[in-house]
Amino acid sequence: MNEKISSLFDSEINNKEVDTLLSKKNKMAGVRSSMSDYQIISDVMKKNTVLPKNNLTDKIMSAIDKEPTQMGGLTKVNSSNTATISFDMWPVLASLAVLVVIASTAFNIEVNSTSQSQLLAKEDIPQEIISAHHAATANNMNHFVQVGDSAQ
Protein backbone atom coordinates (compact mmCIF):
# COMPACT_ATOMS: atom_id res chain seq x y z
CA MET A 1 0.00 0.00 0.00
CA ASN A 2 2.82 2.40 0.89
CA GLU A 3 4.38 1.72 -2.47
CA LYS A 4 1.19 2.79 -4.23
CA ILE A 5 0.89 5.93 -2.11
CA SER A 6 4.48 6.81 -2.94
CA SER A 7 3.79 6.22 -6.64
CA LEU A 8 0.74 8.50 -6.45
CA PHE A 9 2.86 11.46 -5.36
CA ASP A 10 5.52 10.59 -7.90
CA SER A 11 2.83 10.60 -10.65
CA GLU A 12 3.62 6.97 -11.44
CA ILE A 13 0.16 5.47 -10.97
CA ASN A 14 -2.70 4.92 -13.41
CA ASN A 15 -6.20 6.39 -13.09
CA LYS A 16 -7.87 3.18 -11.94
CA GLU A 17 -5.38 2.75 -9.09
CA VAL A 18 -5.88 6.40 -8.11
CA ASP A 19 -9.59 5.77 -7.66
CA THR A 20 -8.94 2.64 -5.60
CA LEU A 21 -6.42 4.46 -3.43
CA LEU A 22 -8.65 7.45 -2.77
CA SER A 23 -11.51 5.10 -1.91
CA LYS A 24 -9.35 3.31 0.65
CA LYS A 25 -8.13 6.62 2.00
CA ASN A 26 -11.63 7.53 3.09
CA LYS A 27 -12.17 4.18 4.80
CA MET A 28 -8.85 3.45 6.49
CA ALA A 29 -7.18 5.71 9.05
CA GLY A 30 -3.76 4.12 8.43
CA VAL A 31 -3.90 4.95 4.74
CA ARG A 32 -4.89 8.57 5.54
CA SER A 33 -1.88 8.87 7.84
CA SER A 34 0.49 7.40 5.28
CA MET A 35 -0.82 9.69 2.57
CA SER A 36 -0.28 12.66 4.83
CA ASP A 37 3.35 11.69 5.36
CA TYR A 38 3.98 11.06 1.67
CA GLN A 39 2.31 14.39 0.82
CA ILE A 40 4.78 16.13 3.14
CA ILE A 41 7.73 14.29 1.61
CA SER A 42 6.55 15.19 -1.87
CA ASP A 43 6.13 18.84 -0.89
CA VAL A 44 9.58 18.96 0.68
CA MET A 45 11.14 17.50 -2.48
CA LYS A 46 9.33 20.08 -4.60
CA LYS A 47 10.02 22.81 -2.00
CA ASN A 48 6.30 23.63 -1.88
CA THR A 49 5.90 23.89 1.87
CA VAL A 50 7.56 24.15 5.26
CA LEU A 51 8.06 20.84 7.06
CA PRO A 52 5.90 20.33 10.16
CA LYS A 53 8.98 19.05 11.91
CA ASN A 54 7.86 17.70 15.26
CA ASN A 55 5.28 15.18 14.15
CA LEU A 56 7.21 13.65 11.31
CA THR A 57 10.55 13.78 13.14
CA ASP A 58 9.08 11.74 15.97
CA LYS A 59 7.88 9.14 13.51
CA ILE A 60 11.25 9.03 11.78
CA MET A 61 13.05 8.69 15.10
CA SER A 62 10.69 5.93 16.15
CA ALA A 63 11.19 4.09 12.87
CA ILE A 64 14.98 4.38 13.11
CA ASP A 65 14.94 3.12 16.68
CA LYS A 66 13.06 0.04 15.56
CA GLU A 67 15.62 -0.70 12.87
CA PRO A 68 17.93 -3.55 13.90
CA THR A 69 21.58 -2.66 14.24
CA GLN A 70 23.72 -5.14 12.36
CA MET A 71 27.33 -5.97 12.90
CA GLY A 72 29.44 -6.50 9.84
CA GLY A 73 30.55 -10.07 9.31
CA LEU A 74 28.20 -11.63 11.86
CA THR A 75 24.84 -11.63 10.10
CA LYS A 76 24.16 -15.00 8.57
CA VAL A 77 23.57 -14.91 4.85
CA ASN A 78 20.18 -16.30 3.81
CA SER A 79 18.97 -16.29 7.40
CA SER A 80 15.39 -15.32 8.16
CA ASN A 81 16.65 -11.90 9.22
CA THR A 82 18.24 -11.14 5.87
CA ALA A 83 16.25 -8.68 3.80
CA THR A 84 15.95 -9.03 0.03
CA ILE A 85 15.20 -6.03 -2.16
CA SER A 86 13.29 -6.25 -5.40
CA PHE A 87 13.01 -3.57 -8.06
CA ASP A 88 9.38 -3.00 -6.99
CA MET A 89 10.76 -1.45 -3.80
CA TRP A 90 12.51 1.46 -5.52
CA PRO A 91 9.71 4.01 -4.93
CA VAL A 92 9.69 3.11 -1.25
CA LEU A 93 13.49 3.26 -1.06
CA ALA A 94 13.45 6.68 -2.71
CA SER A 95 11.02 7.87 -0.05
CA LEU A 96 13.23 6.33 2.63
CA ALA A 97 16.20 8.25 1.30
CA VAL A 98 14.21 11.47 1.70
CA LEU A 99 13.35 10.44 5.25
CA VAL A 100 17.05 10.03 6.03
CA VAL A 101 17.76 13.52 4.65
CA ILE A 102 14.95 14.96 6.74
CA ALA A 103 16.16 13.05 9.79
CA SER A 104 19.68 14.42 9.47
CA THR A 105 18.18 17.90 9.15
CA ALA A 106 16.14 17.28 12.27
CA PHE A 107 19.33 16.61 14.26
CA ASN A 108 20.58 20.07 13.35
CA ILE A 109 24.22 19.13 12.86
CA GLU A 110 26.09 22.36 13.25
CA VAL A 111 28.47 23.27 10.46
CA ASN A 112 29.22 26.81 11.51
CA SER A 113 32.99 27.13 11.38
CA THR A 114 32.91 30.42 13.28
CA SER A 115 31.87 28.76 16.57
CA GLN A 116 33.95 29.82 19.57
CA SER A 117 36.02 26.95 20.94
CA GLN A 118 36.54 26.38 24.66
CA LEU A 119 39.77 25.18 26.24
CA LEU A 120 39.81 21.40 26.59
CA ALA A 121 39.50 20.02 30.15
CA LYS A 122 39.71 16.42 31.37
CA GLU A 123 35.98 16.45 32.07
CA ASP A 124 35.25 17.28 28.44
CA ILE A 125 36.70 14.06 27.10
CA PRO A 126 33.97 11.46 26.48
CA GLN A 127 34.75 8.16 28.17
CA GLU A 128 33.74 6.30 25.02
CA ILE A 129 36.63 7.90 23.15
CA ILE A 130 39.20 6.62 25.63
CA SER A 131 37.49 3.22 25.67
CA ALA A 132 37.35 3.02 21.87
CA HIS A 133 41.05 3.86 21.63
CA HIS A 134 42.06 1.24 24.18
CA ALA A 135 39.74 -1.36 22.65
CA ALA A 136 41.49 -1.04 19.32
CA THR A 137 45.07 -0.54 20.42
CA ALA A 138 45.89 -1.34 24.06
CA ASN A 139 48.14 -4.27 24.88
CA ASN A 140 46.91 -4.16 28.47
CA MET A 141 43.95 -6.50 28.91
CA ASN A 142 42.50 -4.42 31.73
CA HIS A 143 41.79 -1.55 29.33
CA PHE A 144 40.14 -4.00 27.03
CA VAL A 145 37.76 -5.36 29.67
CA GLN A 146 36.79 -1.85 30.78
CA VAL A 147 35.42 -1.25 27.29
CA GLY A 148 32.94 -4.02 27.92
CA ASP A 149 31.98 -2.51 31.27
CA SER A 150 31.33 0.92 29.81
CA ALA A 151 29.06 -0.55 27.18
CA GLN A 152 26.54 -1.52 29.83
Binding site: N108, I109, E110, S115, L120, A132, A136
Partner: peptide, 18 residues
Protein backbone atom coordinates in the same frame (compact mmCIF):
# COMPACT_ATOMS: atom_id res chain seq x y z
CA UNK B 1 43.44 7.13 17.39
CA UNK B 2 42.12 10.13 15.48
CA UNK B 3 38.41 10.75 16.08
CA UNK B 4 36.24 12.84 13.75
CA UNK B 5 32.91 13.61 15.42
CA UNK B 6 30.11 15.87 14.19
CA UNK B 7 29.06 18.42 16.81
CA UNK B 8 25.39 18.62 17.71
CA UNK B 9 23.75 22.01 18.17
CA UNK B 10 24.32 23.42 21.63
CA UNK B 11 27.64 21.65 22.15
CA UNK B 12 30.68 23.84 22.58
CA UNK B 13 33.71 22.70 20.60
CA UNK B 14 36.94 22.15 22.54
CA UNK B 15 40.55 22.81 21.75
CA UNK B 16 43.77 22.01 23.65
CA UNK B 17 45.81 19.13 25.05
CA UNK B 18 45.31 17.21 28.31
Amino acid sequence: SLFIRPIARGTEPKEGVV
